[in-house]
Design a protein around this nucleic acid. Structure first.
Lengths: 145, 145
DNA sequence: GAGATTACTTGCAAACCGCAAGTGAGTATA
DNA sequence: TATACTCACTTGCGGTTTGCAAGTAATCTC
């Protein structure tokens, strides 16, 4: 609960998208979820940006309601929960990459691995396909059990 | 003043970018500034999303400090102010377009002119170049006076 | 000089954020 | 069986930000 009322401000798709994505934390969590392939609450919590646990919890709840992640109990560990990005979330990858590109151009310091920057600049669409493939593999491995 | 403290949360360029762009209004104002070529306070205020005048004022002030817009008095009209996007702002166009694309895919209603959607999908880079060219022309016209 | 236009500012209540601490269920260790 | 630990949250609270309505001061129009 709390966070974000859900009437749309206009019929502009940008406004619609910003109702999901327009805040300081959402895209950072999605970055961890999609690019770093984090899955557990504690993993997100451990990011450099020091997100507070209540904010993280509210975002994950929101994501679930918005169909951006699925929530599943970890069969190997009692209370642990596994968060997995849906297609709708993976479709935000281009947004994240363009933001990364802009940030990298103007930020005084860039902590992104040089290799990632390189392969993203060299072949953006290929890079996106690769990331999607990684998640697809994960899903099938999990479903096979 | 108010809005956004300015220490960086990490060395991640995404986090850096979100400190500018991570809220519900910033990118909407930039949409108007860049895509709709709005220039005056009242024009931004008149958008469908009904931004409040104090929020708009604080954003424009922030933009100026961040080097996203330049502020100039209108020579033709006393108290009127002209806001113009800088290169740094125009570099956010790819971000805006990807957000538009995602929003258009998932929003129930899409109020974006079909023509704009088409030309953007058909040739994204060309579209970006076109928008940039429009702003460049404007600048030279203005500077010629 | 009266009224409109323009770019803001101010005041205030409600929502949201950030921090610190707590909770309750399951897990590993002795 | 007891103890400590892991894990995913929740709670409480003070401070910041937002959203709304109204106001202000400088220009322009008539």
């Amino acid at each position: 609960m709390t966070v974000k009322s859900q009437e749309c401000r206009s019929d502009c798709p940008i406004a619609y998208a910003l109702d999901f994505v327009g805040d300081k934390w959402t895209l950072l969590v999605l970055r961890d979820l999609i690019l770093s392939q984090k899955r557990y609450f504690q993993e997100f919590l451990a990011s450099n940006e020091q997100i507070a646990s209540n904010i993280l919890a509210s975002r994950l709840k929101l994501f679930e309601r918005a169909g951006l992640v699925t929530r599943a109990d970890d069969p190997e560990h009692g209370r642990r929960v596994i968060y997995t990005p849906t297609e709708k979330a993976l479709d935000l990858l281009p947004v994240i990459l363009e933001i990364l590109r802009w940030g990298a151009k103007y930020a005084p310091e860039n902590g992104t691995p040089a290799e990632l920057m390189r392969s993203m600049k060299k072949d953006r669409d290929g890079f996106i396909a690769e990331v999607r493939a990684r998640h697809a593999v994960r899903r099938t491995v999990r479903d096979a059990r």
